[in-house]
Design a protein around this nucleic acid. Sequence first.
RNA 1: UCCCCAGUAGCUCAGUCGGUAGAGCGGGUGACUGUUAAUCACCAUGUCCGUGGUUCGAGUCCGCGCUGGGGAGCCA
Length: 463
Amino acid sequence: MSHRIHIADLLRCPTPGASTTVHGWVRSVRVSSEVAFIVLNDGSNLEGIQVVLERTRLPDFDNLCRITTGSALRVTGTLLPSPGARQQYELQIEELQVVGTADSHYPLQKKRHSLEYLRSIAHLRPRTNTFGAVFRLRSQLAQAIHRFFAEQGFLYVNTPIITASDCEGAGELFRVTALPPNGAPRNEGGEIDFYQDFFGRKTGLTVSGQLEGELFAQAFGDIYTFGPTFRAENSNTPRHAAEFWMIEPEMAFADLADDADLAAAFIRYLCRFALEQCSEDMAFFDRHIEQGLLQRIRSVAEADFARIEYDEAIRHLQQATVSFQFPVQWGLDLQTEHERYLTETVVGGPVFVLNYPKEIKAFYMRQNDDGRTVAAMDLLVPKVGEIIGGSQREERLERLLTRMQEMGVPREPLWWYLDSRRWGSTPHAGFGLGFERLVMYLSGMENIRDVLPFPRTPRHAEF
RNA sequence: UCCCCAGUAGCUCAGUCGGUAGAGCGGGUGACUGUUAAUCACCAUGUCCGUGGUUCGAGUCCGCGCUGGGGAGCCA
């Protein structure tokens, strides 16, 4: 297999006059009597490369001009400065081979399609400008996330995808079973007997890697997970999917302030990374997906991240001159409209809201001395509201047990989690970030189904 | 799961008061000496989502269903 040159690399380090071979798919064909232009794209960049066919150089010119949108080509030619205005270089063709043809039924036309239509042809949409940009950004961001944590000395841990703990309260589990759908063995009470199932117990797909992540933090100090996560909720919104990817760092010997420091550094790093390393695609998003995107991301990359207490946030909202659809009252959770008001109007930039009422937060969050709040934090950013949610964890065994009892969380299935508080427990903290929501935030795409390669949502698992 | 909106050509959509459907793009054919979603001319587009009903007559009105979108809840 010969080494294939990516078009992006070719254009990044051009050698004018050199003979070059590239491979890719036809985006556009423009034919005149003496010259024809084919825009070839191999996914490595947005623009692709313009290849030029001249009648005088190609005996087969008329036949080659019949090449259609969508065909796969292998072309050899000379890289030359382009006389055209829209590209610096172009490829003057000497040899052209059609690797795979595409007939006129090829669903992607040389025109703008709706995102809804492209969703129905998810197997072909990566060949469009928009989805090319989305999935290049997604790939680059995934690698940047690993680089960020690697630079900070974090250990990457793969927490289990199949789990037996369904008591995390984070949503409905998908069941994992090897029992036959009909005629599953029953126990004396008539219920399905999971003791006879593959794992000898009731299992499901993970809804969060946090609890296991905490265990690794108690051995390696700083860790993160980055993996698939599943929720069987019947949510039909632009922000929910049944299968998504989540990033969950966890730090031992750390408190809520350390947690916020990490989250701020993380978001700033990723904003800067996208602007600097994905500039062509980001400029495309700014032009075609969300006008003002670059300015929005730049301002976050350069911002000081403000910190306010939940109490303070409630007071701001109660004094607001605008009217909200949902009530504002101490003890109630913040709705998206409240979050956006805080970050967009009150602060005018990213803001952490700290220390929420314990009643609206999870059992594992550290109880504050005031007896009514826990050390939780949400990072709010303009346009979307909450983008990161985290907390300092309750490291004191007795306090944790009391809270679990109050909230009706059974302790027996979590014996291993509780053990981490029994021996060498440390103050520790972490947060969770939905990867797709990050990609949406940085690209301006407004539907989670358009930043997942093959989205899984209620009634949709076709591709 | 609840509320709202939509479904007409390959795609995006128009279709008036109920009288058997139209545009742009795309496709085909031809023209054009360098195009940039090329341009110009000509040609062909159809289970009007499905189903039941009202009516002399339904793309149009009504019921049910399916699909898509938006909002809510849940959350990442």
